[in-house]
Design a protein around this nucleic acid. Structure first.
Lengths: 169, 169
DNA sequence: TATTGTTATACTCTATAACTATA
DNA sequence: TATAGTTATAGAGTATAACAATA
């Protein structure tokens, strides 16, 4: 559901020409792509935090909920692996989603150690809203990039990840 | 000082064809550029943490040290602003660098509230080593991207940042 | 009144070790 | 022995509020 272009309720009225660059003292760091990646991510992250907060979601809980909705029966350990989160840290995230009534832990009959994660109707509904907000966030904050640029960017980021997979599995 | 191509001491011997993708359960999240940005950043971040650790640096302390070395006399508040870190959180970072003998807080004669930050000889030396490690990190983890791709990526990331500046100053 | 640096505090994310119950 | 989930804990990063000294 790609959102249509519309006014950003979170954007503040500030013109480009009134913006004062903070001395650009970070020029020495801008040579590093890691620094640029972090800053670019932080702009999208900030927007997400503001938008998800009214739903009672954080970025990590949103990510987990979305994967559970899209992969019914996903095991807790598989979810942790997919998100690169330690299983010990996943417990609190799944606890939170379960406490809010958005998912259920269902014991696996075939392996009584494992838990299959299932989204409830309320969880699916919340996830749908959160996804719309996430699309809106990117639509807003990436509005000066063309579709071609976005595709290029996605592909290059994927390339970085796949390079790392080779280096350290 | 762009590092020359050489073997990565941190890379592990693992072939692409032996890599098992963790079920790709995160397909639903890969539609979001923010998710891809975070994962790409994390690969560079992990490499930096490993490389900087022997020097006694973290990513934030390295960033601060580098900016102080490159901008002698930088005020603590300007440093915080450049790195998008709250001044209250900058105190511990500057404390750490000062405790290790890498920088000095020098009171400003013109404004007795302010502190000018100056790198020591040891600080400059440590910074030089850390910069070399940072270059090596990117040289290694971005080795399957061409120079043209890296330039494109840098420019697109910059565009995201400048878009955000307009939205929320 | 506003700003610089500081302290205190709290919440999130991340990382490790050790435990349980199953396999 | 190994794995799935859990608990406990600690280190970082980040956010806000309040303060002293100075502008």
């Amino acid at each position: 559901m790609p959102p249509t272009k519309k006014a950003d309720p979170f954007a503040q009225q500030q013109r480009l020409d009134s913006y004062e660059h903070p001395a650009a003292a970070d020029a020495g760091l801008r040579r590093f792509l890691g620094y640029r990646l972090k800053r670019a991510y932080n702009t999208l992250r900030s927007g997400m935090l503001v938008r998800l907060e009214p739903l009672g979601l954080r970025i990590t809980t949103f990510s987990a909920l979305l994967l559970i909705v899209h992969n019914p029966g996903l095991r807790q350990s598989a979810l942790a692996s997919a998100l690169d989160i330690k299983t010990s840290n996943m417990v609190a995230i799944v606890d939170d989603l379960e406490a809010k009534g958005w998912i259920k832990r269902k014991p696996e009959p075939t392996d009584r150690r494992a838990l299959a994660l299932i989204a409830t109707t309320a969880g699916k509904s919340t996830c749908k809203k959160a996804e719309a907000l996430a699309f809106e966030n990117e639509e807003t904050l990436l509005n000066n990039l063309s579709d071609a640029e976005l595709n290029t960017l996605s592909a290059l980021l994927e390339k970085i990840e796949s390079s790392a997979e080779i280096s350290h599995g």
